[in-house]
Design a protein around this nucleic acid. Structure first.
Lengths: 143, 143
DNA sequence: TTAATTAGTTAGGCAAACTAACTAACGAAT
DNA sequence: ATTCGTTAGTTAGTTTGCCTAACTAATTAA
């Protein structure tokens, strides 16, 4: 099989088991991986508008609205009004921040386990490859 | 950011855009990427039972049943009864086989475009890394 | 000041997955 | 040979995670 076929073959087979296991790890926090992605984004990039979150995750705004609403219900996020009165700045609550620490610890352990036998160089190279693909897809869409 | 974090970060960001674009490529054949995965599997591995398909894709049987039913409606697949009368052997129809050729050509072009700037070595290394992850996840589930 | 754009929400829909509960057929074990 | 556990596949019903269309409110540009 050609290298590019090999790669996409493995790529397809890996995603579901990974997300399923991630969801299982997150269950004790009553979170799905999609919700954790939002919290993770805010944790590392500070408060964000709903549009920021949507465009970063490359999903539509209504989808993001609902996820954020759920996270607000769980008291993991809160929204404050921005200078531009149309916007809502979404930030972590104290409880949310606390959970982030616990979740990060758990997820990091899982992720490190998955890559423990792979040299760091290769991990970085694979990350670069994926990043490259993301860029190419954006270009492809435009032109 | 640590290599393993980098990797999973990119991994998360790449999947949806990739699948979305794949679905767009497949739209002219009235297929979704999940359905194409099934056809692709049968194309490369010959006729399969429904259980084979489900366990390979790592989804539950009811999910597989419905997808295969849809592909039979489209006249891309057909099922014949196996020696074991409980089983159904799912195989490509003539029309399905024809479509596979057309789809393969289109998808290959897209996938090659995505990786055209990446040395083949790195592609293979990344495929190996993903394969390794799949294995680790299976192990993790068991123990 | 009016028109176009942007931020966010609501409503409604669909794909893709799941579990639970079922039927039918097989196989092993006494 | 009969029974009992297992496997193959289906049906029914639910949920997640995404989408588009249509809307309101606020901002920006002409």
């Amino acid at each position: 099989m050609k290298p590019y076929k090999q790669f996409f073959h493995e790529y397809n087979l890996t995603y579901r088991p990974y997300v399923n296991q991630l969801n299982q790890e997150l269950a004790e926090f009553q979170l799905y991986s999609s919700q954790w992605r939002i919290m993770h984004f805010i944790l590392h990039n500070g408060e964000q508008t709903l549009s920021d979150i949507a465009s970063y995750q490359k999903v539509e705004k209504p989808t993001t609205t609902k996820m954020v609403q759920r996270l607000i219900e769980l008291d993991y996020l809160q929204s404050i009004s921005g200078a531009d009165k149309r916007t809502k700045l979404i930030q972590l609550t104290e409880k949310g921040l606390e959970r982030c620490d616990q979740i990060q610890a758990k997820i990091s352990q899982f992720q490190q386990y998955l890559l423990e036998d792979i040299p760091e160089e290769e991990q970085v190279a694979a990350a670069r490859l994926l990043n490259h693909i993301s860029g190419k897809i954006s270009d492809y869409r435009k032109g």
